[in-house]
Design a binder for these strands. Structure first.
Lengths: 209, 209
DNA sequence: CCCTGTGAACCTGTTCACAGCG
DNA sequence: CGCTGTGAACAGGTTCACAGGG
């Protein structure tokens, strides 16, 4: 526990800063000011400085931030300076789409295995992994030191999958099933509820009429 | 604009309340208290009452909330008491997975069309729609009164797709491309950055060691 | 003079606590 | 007596504003 009360929205923005910095690096920009960074993300410059300030002193007064060192620092903070192995549970439409999604690898995540209970899916090749049976999960999780998992199974089986993941030593779950998952306290869950996201948009539209 | 300063986290939770209420309804539970609802979502009872209080008085002291009327009220608030038509832009892996996802329809959303620029994809049937060319967007948007769109295209084309959507009168965009989209002020964007979500989990794990 | 880092002020959202109704 | 609805107290985050370094 080395957390000194960092606002969780600040951590969310860290990913955005990193993304923007990677664009700048690709465009061979060497340095950037907080107000430039803020501008492209539609937030204030003070916000950028404060967020970065939670983690250290990365800038130089009168100059700004050097792009490359800041990228490395942010990756280190986020834990993506080394490859993170990930498993995907559920090889339905969504699971298969995630297995083929290239965005994860670019950000330092490596999907090392996929799992399903359906005999019709087990054994099939998707992306660069073969779908395995759920019973193989503990062995794979141990072998590849997997800490992160993605749940892309139907709502009804989400909780039992979660239990299996907790037992297998997974510490973070990205959950696409529309359900609240019960976990051991050392496991973090991040929900992604697609229908609820559309509902939020629907509300925004409805209330601005 | 009938918005009387409602905290946006409260709106997010509205979707969770609705989801839980629908479960209760399926289990033929007729009424529920704020503390019951709160318990299953891991929040406080006061939070539930305050959130609902922003939108009206739905409960009865000493009794609780009647499940069915509250469901109807929440759907009305979220604008999903009538079907909302949606278009999906991009018929790659993710787009096709979304086209087949049943969760949207259950919540009152109807995907009426999919679009892509690639000639190899246009004309193909996915789920219950046929993939159309981007140039057909304005006609379809008008014909079906589409207000919501989902962007599932590569990052590079996300902005030009956004421009087309704004011109076609779309008011809400669910954006899977890892990019900040520039829109006209009357268009709401909700980002879903899958890699960034994994980064958040990675951070949580890294900082609890 | 430009730009960072950071206390202080401000604002937004959550929790408390209780009055009041069934 | 149980449970809602809601002001009041509190906590968490954001913005301000400025001191200080290059």
């Amino acid at each position: 526990m080395k957390n000194r009360s960092i606002p969780s929205p600040a951590v969310t923005r860290l990913s955005l800063y990193l993304r923007e910095l990677e664009h700048l690096q690709a465009a061979e920009v060497a340095k950037v000011s907080s107000s430039q960074l803020a501008g492209s993300l539609h937030i204030t410059d003070a916000q950028v400085r404060k967020d970065l300030g939670y983690f250290g002193q990365f800038g130089r007064p009168g100059v700004g931030y050097r792009v490359e060192p800041l990228i490395e620092a942010l990756r280190h903070i986020l834990g993506t300076d080394r490859t993170q192995n990930v498993v995907v549970i559920g090889a339905g439409d969504l699971g298969r789409a995630l297995l083929r999604y290239r965005g994860f690898h670019k950000k330092g995540f490596d999907i090392v295995a996929a799992f399903d209970i359906s005999a019709s899916k087990v054994g099939k090749q998707v992306g660069h992994v073969k779908v395995m049976d759920m019973s193989d999960l503990p062995a794979i999780a141990g072998k590849y030191d997997v800490k992160l998992a993605v749940i892309a199974v139907p709502t009804e089986s989400a909780q039992q999958v979660t239990d299996a993941l907790c037992s297998a030593g997974i510490k973070g779950i990205l959950n696409f099933a529309p359900a609240i998952l019960e976990t051991t306290p050392d496991v973090a869950v991040r929900p992604v509820d697609l229908a609820a996201s559309l509902e939020q948009l629907s509300f925004t539209i409805a209330s601005s009429e």
